[in-house]
Nucleic acid binder design. Sequence first.
DNA 1: ATCCTCCCCTAC
DNA 2: TAAGGTAGGGGAGGAT
Length: 1175
Amino acid sequence: MPGSYADKPQSQEHSSDWFSSDPAVYVQALDEFEQSLAQQDCQQQVLKEQEITVQESQPPSTVHKRPHGEVTGEYLDSNTYGAATFGGFGEYMTRKRAKLQVQNQAFNPESGFETSSNIFQGIAIYVDGFTIPSVQELRRMVVEHGGDFHAYLDRKSLVTHIITSSLTPAKLLDYQRMKVAKPDWLVESVKAGKLLPWQNYIFRPENRALPSMNKTPAQPSLFSTKKTATIDPVTEGKDAFPSYAAHKSNLNAARAIENPGWRAAHTSAAPGFIDEYYKNSRLHYLSMWKTELRKLVQEAQERAENAPFESSPKVSVQGLTLTAASSRNDTNLGGLGPVLRSPSKKGKEKVRDRGCEQVIMHCDFDAFFVSAGLLDHKNLRGKPVVVCHSQGDQGGASSTSEIASASYEARKFGIKNGMSLQQARKLCPTIQTMPYEFDKYRNLSLKFYTTLMSYADDLEAVSVDEALIDVTSTFEHVEASQRCESIKAYAESIRAKVREETGCEISIGISWNIILSRIASRKAKPANSFLLVPDDLRSILDPLDIKDLHGFGSSTKQKAVDKLGTSSLGELVKKPKGILCDALGKGTGEMLYNALRGVDERRLASDKPRKSVSCDINYGIRFQNDTEVDSFMRKLSEEVHKRLKKEDLRGKLITLKVMKRDPSAPLEAAKFMGHGMCETFNKQSTLIGRDGGATDDPQIISQQSLRMLRSFNFDPKELRGIGIQIQKLEKATANSAAPEVGQGLISFKPRDKEPPKNVSSGKGNEKEKRTITSWPVPTNPSAIVISSDDPPTEIRLSPPQIEVEVATAVAKTREEQDATTALVERAAEPYHPDLPSFSQVDMSVFKALPEDVRRELEAEYSRRSVPPPAEAQEAPAPTTVVTTNATAGPSRLPAPAKWVAWGDRVPKNSKRIAQQLAPKRGGAVVPRTDQWDALTKWLEKPKKFKGKRAGPSHVVYDASPNELRSLGIDPEVFGLLPPEIRREQLSGAKIAIDTGALPLLTDESKLIIKPVKTMVIRYPRLPPPKASYLPQPVLKMPGEKRGYRVSYTEPDDIQGLVEKWVTGFRRHPPNQKDVDRFSKWLLSCMDSGKAGDVGMEKAVKVMKWWLFLLRRNWGWLEGIESFDLDEDEFEDGEKGGSYYERREVGKAWWMAFQTVKNQMDSYSRKRFGGCISLR
DNA sequence: ATCCTCCCCTAC
DNA sequence: TAAGGTAGGGGAGGAT
Ligand SMILES: Nc1ccn([C@H]2C[C@H](O)[C@@H](COP(=O)(O)OP(=O)(O)OP(=O)(O)O)O2)c(=O)n1
Ligand SMILES: [Mg+2]
């Protein structure tokens, strides 16, 4: 079994010279390490596995488990307090202790204490009730001596010992099988300087039976076989166990709820409850902000893609002008403002550093809410402060108010985010509180993000106070020996800048991938940065716990402890991959396996489309009758509707989530007005709008939700939480008619309203000046689109066999491939913002226009002295791709633009029509999920007509003006085209949208079957569910000033693309950005589908092709490793640097290849357990 | 095998 | 008195 997952030694992950550590040495060490470990541990692990495998039986209904760590019976049933913890634990701990001594305190920033010994290493205590010494004192002792302190007895804790001086009978029962000791145990141990046997300090009230420890897993009797339950950690130990909690209501709450007036005014029964609640829910804000920030980043990226060379446009984000932060950027390190800095390379880069490992920074405010609050509460600085709703003396010693953020001073007392105020008061009676200031948080966050964007190549919005940035390009050319210093300095300058902008401290963790950068940021905190380099990997990871890895929480930790006998990374790294996978699941196991080795292949996710919209309220839900429930549900549905509307989304699937008080739970939860221990129930149903499609109709939503809710037949009084979630989202505007057949998508609306700014106006940077260069763009059955305003140096692809310089290739290719469209460009065409250059006009479309319209256009072009395209006279039967020019303003399509069928005469507007024919902007064509869905549907289902139509019904392929408009298609122009052209445009556009490209398809059957079936490739930008489509690579062309966008849908096209790329760069090293894109695309191919599938094949095929091409061009350089040969080796420095230059170029290509191959291998090992063979 | 559905889990 | 929301990754197991 271990063998099945047992892996070949990792090699490439660290093979590159990241931060100048010696890769070879490292890799080898790692290999040996792994191999020895794998062997040594195998049998042992298998045995353990068998011992432990005891499946918990699932309760009939699922029981809600609180995010904040309530215990479930399930967990208690399995070994939480059983053998794994009490028996095996000691032994494991001994080993661990020996090994990991040094580091633990380093990663115990919360403690603030010096670790003076490690006698409590592996001990995790929970203090119950009043003790002498006090809780604080005990905590300090334990932490100082290497142990853990837990405020709750929940499953997050994995508490090993309970410390108490007195117990109620109920708890006595609960703790029957636990290790319960007196405080003296700790005190004496500290005195003795060693861990004394706890058995000598067993807590024994009068007649408590001596617990039979460490034999069988403990099982609180209450949970024997019954359904699981959740526990509230809110009130300290008080109701830490169900048997106890079951009969104790929160008295304050019970009293309050008894008062009808109060209930009517302050619970879910109150009319304004939802709004009022959301207005005060920090978690709600957190979620909304995250959504907002993601969007913001996405938009910034689009701007960056569209206009990477424009000077920073002032962009107002949410009413806040953000240029301030960036315009006077004194750091000189970025400064593009809300346009995501794009790593523009000036000059051709020489041979690139090999192994372009990423440099990822995790940036996070320190104690964000507190820091923000302290800006205006300077008097509280340096004190233990927390942010929570309860202020001053409110609630006294028993406030269940949750702490959103605790200052670092407060953390020294063991206070943590999420803890209840009463808990905190226990740990630190003098704790100070500050109120929430939600607006302030948001504004600070915007400044923070704005600043980061000016430093980053890419950015992933993690939360309001936290972001991941990719700054790889910044250090690409930094000498290896200086990298670390350079990176640190960069991080510090970011910190300084954020400090300047916000007045708050952030910390930055830096490493070569995401998961490690997060580890690093924890080491950095507070108010610092930390660079985690490969050399330090083991010494940093080994002492950590699995929970310290982002994405691995309490449940996973529990699983690890149960099934693997340890949750320590130092131990887990010895386990073979198979064992980890068996214990944690395939994906999680592999993720862990890799993380343990410093590997994390994920890229920053900055542009994923949203997949669901939901509203949940699980607080203050206290109904008396169905009327209240109905009313509440309607309002909640209204809220859902509002959110859908805001994003212009509709959904086809609705899920209702209901939380109902667990029968064993008290009527009033420990947490005031909380949901307490609950059972949860989900019900899902398709959501059908009035037109049969997706909907956002609040009526329908509420009617459906109510129907589902009623079907449960729950007593309204028992409800504790309600949630409505909408999935299978579509863009509302693309949905106005039956999504069936002809509904098509021709082309795309430029996202940008302004006309493309042209650099050639002369005021722009000289070297960025655009020149339209001749670029014959032949097509094959896929498509080609040229973008009129792509970034100057970017070129977007082209099909195979086409030489940049060879215009004649067009005809040939077209012939051969029965192609469809050609877009021909002429050199140096003058730019007219209102008209696409003639060269960009799709001739086939052009020719298909009615005679008079065409003449009008021709006249216009001729007036501008642009010769009509040569092919205009003899273009073959057209198939087509149409794109739009970015010029389209809001006014371009007056809202009620009229559908016009072929033959109708419309007021002509040559400008507009031409625009319609012109390519869209680079980043403007972004596939959308809804469009994808429409396409999928269309492709899968036989077409049939249905639904109301705005236009004449005799038109076979049509789409409503709305649909067209939403896609950036001018309905008028569309109407001018003959049906077959429309059909083709629709087809092409459908694919195009989903591929992120604008493919051109002559053959409809091919359209339907091929691209979808054969490609199965994910476009990382907007991956629709199950989507099979291609990204739109962008390759930079040296020497070329003009950008093109070419798209493809067929494998051959990709090959052609690659060929084009290689050929086009024969004399230039590949651009890093292109390599990255290419690599990203390949990886996304491999990622598509669930198992090694077509996407994988595709990726391999393309790689092979690339390899072939490189061999053809620079075969003589293959395998050459050293890149620092002296120049004098080649006397022939002249001749255009011929040999030397060519050699350098070739090597650059090979390196790029190697880099990509490495990444693929690495990914492939993770996914499939082996490298990729290109033979 | 692969997809789909119904969850759990995680993070802030 | 308090405001325990929400989106996405992923696993288990049934449907196809
Ligand atoms: N259970 C939690 C956790 C966090 N937050 C809010 C308040 C925090 O200030 C903010 C950011 O969370 P972090 O996890 O980044 O914690 P802090 O920024 O407070 O502290 P630090 O990042 O220094 O650990 O999110 C919250 O409301 N409830
Ligand atoms: Mg923070």
